[in-house]
Design a protein around this nucleic acid. Structure first.
Length: 962
RNA sequence: GCUGAAGUGGUGGAAUUGGUAGACACGUUGGACUUAAAAUCCAAUGAACAGUAAUGUUCGUGCGGGUUCAAGUCCCGCCUUCAGUACCA
């Protein structure tokens, strides 16, 4: 059979045959890429040096979680961008640290273990190997000598070590620093809590030095938990029954779990917590010192949620109780006509009167049963109930009723508000709904329909000593007065809550804690790592304990200092170990420090190396970590800084968020209940359901290779297709790239067909790095064409030929324009326009038939960060014996860029002015002369005198004629 | 609702930050080469109108105003899309 016929028959479908046709014409990227990848690997070309006299540059990617699905073309975008920068900085003479590792603890490996019984470490190992293969094909300049995995004991022993440092630290609010716990103990021994300025739990009792000394050892330890940076506390947590674990606030999205989308409920549990709230102010202020994207900073600011106001205490009439509230509007104190408590508030039971008890109980129960979701979707519905009790207004002494309403959140502020219906819309609606009186305290403002919430120039009325003051004056005056009479104080409130640190999971870092008499104790430091034990089953135990409860060997012998079987727990000096593990964000909260000294056995990193490498100069990763990893890691860094372990309290000077590369899903339509599939244009008037088709079976004009679909899914062999003009046309839709949508494009396939250099440049060429953009394989031919042209500049037929003649000024201009543009673009991370600049240059050189060494050699260097393989190959062919990776980058020579003459007249505005392009050094006389010399201009001026020459920035002049 | 980002050809996107709008690429059309296809090269390609033609004119950066010799870019008022957040007192 004639092979040509096969090509014709399948050419519109079969990309494989397309590809082989490309290859016959393309430069031999397959062999070149293999050659240089193994050259770089065996020469350790990219290992970062220490010590070094060179200036350092630290460029890092957010390390990947190695999932089972492998990489798709969307994943490497950020790595490509950072790799261009890393290689560029090497050419610029920097000692570059460009590491990579794996965030390898996580849920998917554990879920897989639950289903199959395979140990998560095995799954993880397989996935990592696959990731590494895929990454290696793209020619990254990673220093793999510094690779680590967060699930490796040699790494997580230091995660555990940091946990210990946090456990042994407290926050001194006077000097705004975390300090060793011993300092706190010394203070307690000497003075009790007197003059102690510490960030601690709200309900911590004050004690005297004598009281402290009289406490037992256990009681002292229990007391210290109120101060430690990581502490054990009974708290409301987001419990996800389906996942069988608690979730951090940022892991809950719209009331369901981020991973899996399962419902989340509130539950009280004893959990390890991180006292991140003590760093709220510093996390906020630190944002002003780092060059991160403004939207991301804004997200963190909102998440921290600083609000300035005051706490005010109201005594409850006829009860020995006080209600403390937080308000941002102390100026509206005289507008308070009722109080509202969250249904979960501690005082609810105590203060509700007997005749209201039944109603209150019912309401509290009803609110408790409503899920977060219901509450959110039901914002409009106003509900509440009166307690029967009254609070005494601290200024007016009047009695105001105390209500319960679920619009007040237990988790924010004090869980109670002073309600000012005239000044707050929710209070207003609540008051209207329940017919509670509304007092107007604003001068000349109408409040019949809505509360008056603007502050502006409003003056306060009806408010005793605040009358006539504006909002900010009244706020100051009110706080001053409250402080004088002891009923309140100025206060800054944050939305940021302490972070839950326990997970009821197997595949995470064990927490290095054992319990003696129910009191948590740290393992001795030299006993780390506390290795993850083997278990039979990865599910919780029958009694509901976390999976580590299944371990046979999971008890601590305090004297022998080692892990022993659980069955020995009743023996002397043997105690239970903590069963919870750390959350996913633990390992990633300090990893940037580890890269500086990844193989250190004796410390998490050597201080000299931390000092030398300093801050990450460029950190590239997705913005989805804004309120998770990127906040937690800043927090840990600040703690480590306070305790003197790291040299700076912000770890990344510049952050770039790369946008997602989206998939282009394809759908055909199945007639409901049949095996008949319709082309997208035929669905009118039919009952159909859209069916995803794997995009590898769809070509760029949306034609589906329906006769090959059965290769993908055997059931299509039985299907019938209704075609349009003989073709099955798919409907396209841009969505997130995902396995389940069958729109995944595998970088391996692209490397096979087009080569890694082409893939690298094409991903950058797609658009601005920060922007989300759809993948479209069709466009990639332009980049391959560019690299082929570039290759051909050096070749005559298959023969390598370059000329040593002097290049022409036009060629030099083309080269130096490109050098200038590309260098600028890299510095500004505008990598898509840099790629365009290369294309323009090569087009110009091609039409000029340029093969001069003086042009091509610097151009090869210039292109090397983008397309390293082809450039190394050409560099070698140019006669160099050294790799080009650390050759000095070419510099733009301005002398080649000079414009020598006025170019052309551009446009008339119709009457008196026209505009011409000119050079920076052109004089006014030159302009006049040029204007008159130009035929068209002279014709227009028609002998009239030039009245005025207006030189507007750089390039353009306006000439006014009279 | 609030906060943030963005709206430019058939498509992805450029535009030195107020100065020739649509670079570069895809796609499309035509041509060269070829028995043919692929590949490669060359040309055209925002819209409308006029002209055999070279060319010219008008309109064009979501909509409506404004500032300016000059606006995609700045100001005011809208509309739309995306993202984050949500009863935060």
């Amino acid at each position: 059979m004639d092979s040509r016929m096969i090509v014709c028959a399948f050419s519109s479908y079969n990309f494989g045959i397309f590809a082989s046709q490309h290859q016959t014409m393309a430069y031999p990227f397959q062999s070149i890429e293999k050659k240089w990848q193994s050259f770089w690997a065996s020469n350790h070309t990219f290992s970062a040096k220490f010590p070094s006299d060179k200036p350092k540059y630290y460029v890092m990617d957010m390390f990947p979680y190695p999932s089972g699905a492998g990489l798709h073309v969307g994943h490497p975008l950020g790595y490509i961008a950072s790799d261009v920068v890393a290689r560029y900085k090497r050419h610029k003479g920097y000692n570059v640290l460009h590491p990579q590792g794996y965030d390898s603890f996580g849920l998917p490996a554990e879920q897989y273990a639950i289903q199959t019984g395979q140990h998560p470490s095995k799954t993880t190992e397989t996935n990592i190997n696959r990731y590494r293969e895929q990454l290696d094909r793209l020619g990254f300049s990673f220093d793999w000598g510094r690779e680590f995995r967060t699930s490796d004991p040699s790494y997580y022993r230091w995660t555990q070590w940091i946990f210990m440092q946090l456990f042994n630290a407290w926050y001194d609010t006077k000097i705004d620093q975390a300090r060793p716990i011993d300092e706190l103990i010394n203070h307690l021994v000497a003075h009790g809590t007197k003059n102690l300025s510490a960030h601690c739990d709200e309900d911590t009792n004050s004690i005297t030095a004598d009281q402290w000394s009289s406490l037992s050892e256990d009681e002292q330890q229990a007391y210290l938990l109120h101060y430690r940076m990581t502490y054990l506390a009974e708290s409301e947590v987001n419990w996800c029954p389906q996942l069988g674990t608690v979730l951090a606030n940022d892991e809950v999205v719209n009331g369901v779990s981020e991973r899996g989308g399962y419902p989340v409920e509130q539950k009280k549990m004893k959990q390890w917590m991180m006292r991140i709230s003590s760093y709220a102010e510093r996390l906020l202020n630190g944002l002003d010192t780092i060059d991160w994207p403004e939207p991301l900073k804004e997200m963190q600011r909102n998440w921290i949620g600083r609000s300035v106001g005051a706490t005010v205490r109201f005594t409850v009439d006829n009860h020995d109780a006080e209600i403390e509230v937080f308000t941002t509007r102390p100026d509206t104190l005289y507008g308070v006509t009722f109080m509202t408590l969250a249904p979960e508030h501690d005082l609810v039971n105590r203060i509700c009167t007997s005749n209201h008890k039944a109603e209150v109980d019912r309401y509290v129960k009803q609110s408790a049963n409503r899920s977060e979701r219901d509450r959110m979707s039901d914002v409009k519905n106003i509900t509440g109930v009166f307690t029967g009790s009254y609070a005494i207004h601290p200024l007016s002494g009047k009695k105001v009723p105390i209500w319960i309403g679920d619009y007040v959140l237990a988790g924010y502020g004090t869980g109670a508000v002073m309600s000012v219906p005239c000044g707050d819309q929710r209070d207003f609606e609540f008051a209207k709904h329940f017919d509670i009186p509304i007092t107007n305290i604003f001068e000349g403002v109408e409040i019949t329909d809505a509360a008056h919430t603007e502050k502006g120039e409003t003056r306060i009325a009806n408010s005793d000593f605040l009358n006539g003051l504006n909002v900010s004056e009244a706020t100051q005056a009110a706080i001053k007065h409250l402080e004088k009479i002891g009923s309140g104080t100025a206060k800054i409130q944050y939305r940021l809550r302490d972070a839950v640190f326990s997970r009821q999971r197997y595949w995470g870092e064990p927490i290095p804690i054992y319990f003696k008499n129910g009191i948590p104790h740290l393992l001795p430091e030299h006993c780390l790592p506390l290795a993850l034990p083997e278990v039979e089953k990865y599910l919780p135990t029958p009694t509901g304990a976390p999976p580590l409860g299944n371990a046979v060997d999971w008890a601590w012998d305090e004297t022998k200092e080692k892990v022993v079987p659980v069955c020995l727990i009743d023996e002397k000096n043997v105690f239970p170990l903590e069963l919870n593990t750390m959350p996913g964000w633990a390992g990633s909260s300090w990893y940037f420090n580890r890269y500086t000294d990844a193989n250190n056995q004796n410390a998490f990193a050597d201080r000299d190396k931390l000092d030398y490498w300093g801050k990450v100069d460029l950190y590239v990763g997705g913005s989805e970590h804004a309120t998770g990893h990127l906040l937690y890691s800043r927090f840990w860094q600040k703690v480590l800084f306070d305790l003197g372990y790291v040299p700076m309290d912000e770890y990344a000077q510049k952050l770039i968020n790369q946008g997602m590369i989206l998939g282009d899903s394809a759908f055909i339509y199945r007639k409901t209940g049949t095996q008949t599939y319709l082309s997208a244009g035929l669905i009118e008037g039919q009952t159909v359901e859209p069916i995803n088709v794997d995009v590898t079976y769809v070509d760029s004009s949306n034609v589906v290779a329906h006769d090959r679909l059965h290769e993908w899914r055997p059931e299509f062999a039985q299907a019938t297709f209704e075609l349009q003009e003989g073709k099955l046309i798919a409907k396209r839709e841009i969505e997130k790239m995902s396995k389940s949508k069958y729109n995944v494009v595998n970088p391996d396939d692209i490397c096979d067909q087009y080569g890694a250099d082409t893939l690298r440049m094409y991903e950058l060429f797609l658009g601005p790095i920060e922007q989300a953009k759809p993948w479209n394989t069709a466009g990639i031919s332009g980049v391959l064409g560019f690299l082929n042209k570039f290759w051909r500049l050096f070749h005559n037929d298959q023969q390598f030929v370059v000329s040593d003649e002097q290049p022409s000024p036009a060629m030099l201009k083309s080269l130096h324009t490109t050098i200038k543009k590309v260098t600028n673009d890299i510095e500004q991370f505008s990598l898509n326009t840099a790629v365009s600049a290369f294309m323009i240059c090569v087009n110009e050189l091609t039409s000029a038939k340029c093969n001069h060494r003086g042009i091509l050699q610097p151009l090869t260097l210039l292109l090397a960060p983008f397309a390293p393989h082809i450039c190394e190959e050409l560099w070698e062919k140019l006669g160099h014996t050294q790799s080009l990776f650390d050759q000095p980058y070419p510099l733009a020579d301005a002398s080649h860029l000079k414009e020598t003459q006025i170019t052309y007249p551009i446009s008339f505005n119709g009457k008196m002015r026209f505009t011409i392009a000119l050079d920076a050094e052109t004089s006014k006389e030159d302009i006049e002369k040029a204007a008159l010399a130009d035929e068209r201009t002279a014709q227009y001026i028609g002998g009239k005198a030039i009245k005025k020459v207006i030189v507007v920035p750089k390039k353009i002049v306006n000439i006014v004629i009279g």
